[in-house]
Design a protein around this nucleic acid. Structure first.
Length: 419
RNA sequence: GUGGGUGUAGCUCAGUUGGUCAGAGCGCCUGGUUGUGGCCCAGGAGGUCGUGGGUUCAAAUCCCAUCACUCACCCCA
């Protein structure tokens, strides 16, 4: 048997209805907020991600699906969407017409990581990106939108964490302060932290090992190192969230693994998904457009982890199948032909109906209708053909009524639409 | 990439120290109702025991390898 490749999966009927529901709600909300859909390719030049995400990030270093094309140039299955959106924004000259643009895109991303709960090698994201607005109002609006999205879906157990990572002005200073703080406590740190103290000192601050936790008591906080502009920006964001009653938690240890983030970053976290606690994440990336060859353009965006969101809403445990309104049970060849005509008519007019194609016994067809969880069963056999009346059975109440064969589909459709 | 756990019927799982160990429940099909579902009863179909080697008279069971699933580290959506 040929099986799925590792870390990939099928979203099956029964679950896919939930995905569709999430997706359509996301579209409505995003479009209400002025975001327009942009559909992007799944593969891009490797260089786009190397430059955009950062050459020393885990994603670029070891998680990308990269293949040479026929001429040996590197091309990569996108590990995230933001770099592609930025590329498209630059390539189509939006900066020239109107630099303020809001885009959203929904689709698969690919990262070659070891799969585990909530982590797949092909996973789906809903991305929203807003260009050209430096004002903290953009940050507030983005986070407000995300908040509405999650509350609208009634997602259980989510908390939004917010932080500011500063800018090229203040972040390096903080980084230095942090490294020097950590460096004279090396002997008290776990081996992992000793290794990452230099490369990613923020991780040390966030380490769960008790010894490390103790060692980093009183570590410098980014919040104390923000330059005046960043500080003011962050303040404005927080006030904006308060004004709109968006709940959040300021989390000075919130780090993000992509190099392009500046100032505001945020992550929607849950405790229900094991180690993979981020359901959505994002932030401001004021430097990225320029890094990728465009004009200096402020921008901010987020990604929602579709798979994780669906999991939180019970995708794997529940069945979201929508049952048909009607099942047609036919007995005998003549009846079956007529029934098939009805079936086509019902389907054409948008009514979900099913029938048995194989000429099984009535009992077997009733079982099938029950399995479908059909609301009603329309029965057509020799008796009905003779007296010109079909039987319509309500599967919940067990009530049956007769419906004249003449003009039957109109009448049955009307009955079903009444409920 | 590293470590732990697990792979037996469509699903959830039993299978004791290698020797009627190829099983159960659910689901599916048929019948009990020559035309009426869910409950009940009876019967039936369905498995190269993840895969490939090895040990043995004999392997689902022991050994090796490999693949996959899963949880965690790491990182993130």
């Amino acid at each position: 048997m040929i099986k799925l490749i590792r870390g990939f999966r099928d979203i099956l009927p029964g679950q896919v209805e939930l995905w569709q529901d999430i997706e359509s709600k996301a579209r409505v909300l995003l479009e209400n907020f002025g975001f327009r859909e942009i559909r992007l390719p799944i593969m891009e030049s490797t260089e786009l991600f190397a430059r955009g995400i950062g050459a020393d990030t885990d994603i670029v270093e070891k998680e990308m699906y990269t293949f040479p094309d026929s001429k040996g140039r590197g091309q990569t299955l996108r590990p995230e969407a933001t770099a592609s959106v930025v590329r498209s924004y630059i390539e189509h000259g939006y900066a020239g017409s109107d630099p303020v643009q809001k885009f959203y895109t929904i689709g698969p991303m690919f990262r070659h990581e070891r799969p585990q709960k909530g982590r797949y090698r092909q996973f789906y994201q809903i991305n929203a990106e807003m260009f050209g607005v430096a004002s903290p109002l953009a940050d507030v609006q983005i986070m407000y939108l995300l908040h509405l999205f999650f509350t609208g879906l009634d997602v259980p157990d989510v908390v939004t964490h917010v932080n500011s990572l500063g800018c090229p002005e203040c972040r390096p200073k903080f980084r230095e302060a942090l490294i020097s703080f950590v460096s004279d406590k090396m002997d008290r740190l776990c081996s992992d932290c000793q290794r990452r103290a230099e490369a990613n000192p923020l991780r040390v601050i966030d380490c769960k090992v008790p010894g490390c936790k103790e060692a980093v008591q009183g570590a410098p906080s980014i919040q104390d190192h923000l330059c005046p502009d960043c500080k003011e920006h962050f303040q404005a964001v927080i006030e904006g969230l308060d004004d709109l009653n968006v709940p959040y938690e300021i989390d000075p240890r919130l780090v993000r693994g992509l190099d392009y983030y500046t100032r505001t970053t945020f992550e929607v976290q849950t405790t229900l998904l094991g180690a993979q606690n981020a359901v959505a994440g994002g932030g401001r990336y004021d430097g990225l457009v320029k890094v990728l060859g465009g004009k200096e353009t402020p921008a901010i965006g987020f990604a929602v982890g579709f798979d994780r969101l669906a999991a939180l809403l019970g995708a794997e445990e529940k069945d979201f199948t929508v049952p048909p309104a009607l099942f047609i049970a036919a007995l005998g060849e003549d009846a079956r032909k007529i029934a098939f005509g009805w079936l086509c008519d019902f389907n054409a007019r948008g009514l979900r109906a099913e029938m048995d194609y194989e000429g099984k016994s009535l009992k077997s067809q009733m079982k099938q209708a029950n399995r479908f969880n059909a609301g009603r069963v329309l029965i057509l056999g020799e008796n009905e053909l003779q007296n010109g009346m079909a039987v319509l059975r309500n599967m919940n109440t067990k009530e049956q009524e007769e419906v004249a064969l003449d003009g039957l589909t109109d009448r049955v459709a009307a009955l079903i639409n009444q409920g």
